[in-house]
Amino acid sequence: MYESRTKRLNVAAVALLGFFLWWAQGNLDGYKIQILNLVAINIILALSLNLIYGFTGLFSLGHAGFMAIGAYVSSLLILPAAQKEMIFLLEPLVWPLSVLQAPFFVAVLAGGVAAALFGLLISLPVLRLGGDYLGIATLGFAEIVRVVANNLSGITNGALGLKGIPNHANIWWNYGWCLFTLYFIARLVNSNFGNVLKAIRDDETAARAMGIDVLRCKVVSFSIGAFFAGVGGALMASLLTTIDPKMFLFLLTFNVLMIVVAGGLGSLSGTVIAGVVITVLLEWLRFVENPVTIGSFHIPGIPGMRMVIFSMALLFIILFRREGIMGMREITWNGIIGVCRRKGEKDRD
């Protein structure tokens, strides 16, 4: 009974979101729509990192690398041949890529698959490491990806990057992928396979004694996370229409990590909430870097201030509320209804 009610409420929530997006498309300006799009993509990225770190306990700092792979692969598949010829000034694009074309959905999927394959490739050696060493090794992987992207002019156009990527990633694609990511990861972590991942996170030794092939499960979780990071990167490339290696610095991973930590490691609803709050906050904070004129006062913008505030916020969270917004808890329909009932009863008393 509860299950069917949850299902109905989920459908209702998705419908409500759809209605809101439809309304937003007609009534909000381009800048606000852009923020809405970024919210969706950041949630995809943060959910995938939460699967890897929050649920499986693998401290990975390689997200920027997976995003870069997803972004480049899908962009090369949707760039029109003429545009490719125009932007590859240093070296022409190598042959099959120069003529290869795919529909947007397939391109994004290919970006995710490519990222997942790289995830698989590096996870086999790297996941034998634990804790902080894994973090550094995955960070190293991301940096290698960036350096390679900077040098492999025949494929990535080097430091110039790719320009004029078709802007297919509209609000429907982004939220569609965002909902799919949420659905997929929620189903995964709430299944017994998810229980196994959490077991590995909580006590690897005990998990091994329970007959769990720890390395295999880690590889699966890591690769699925890499897939969605690649999808996020692919969508972001199409949303921003330009990418270059500088975009995929460690800072990008830091932003995603911030959302995951703020939302709560091992909480999907926390990640969604933090994804919205932090994306909006990051955009809103741009005002401190822009000059402001109030009456006759002219306050010059302070470059760097936004990230100062942002990194201070992370420090506050990690020092004073380490479990983040939600800890490991989730907001569920049953939970909400329970709270409403209790409140109703209290009001009646």
């Binding site: 830091f254 470059p303 760097g304 936004r306 201070m312 420090l315």
Partner: peptide, 23 residues
Amino acid sequence: APRISALISSIGVSFFIQNLSIV
């Protein structure tokens, strides 16, 4: 705290110092 917490804290400090230096 768990070791990774201090590591995340140090990543935060790193970005803080860099950006404070820009400021």
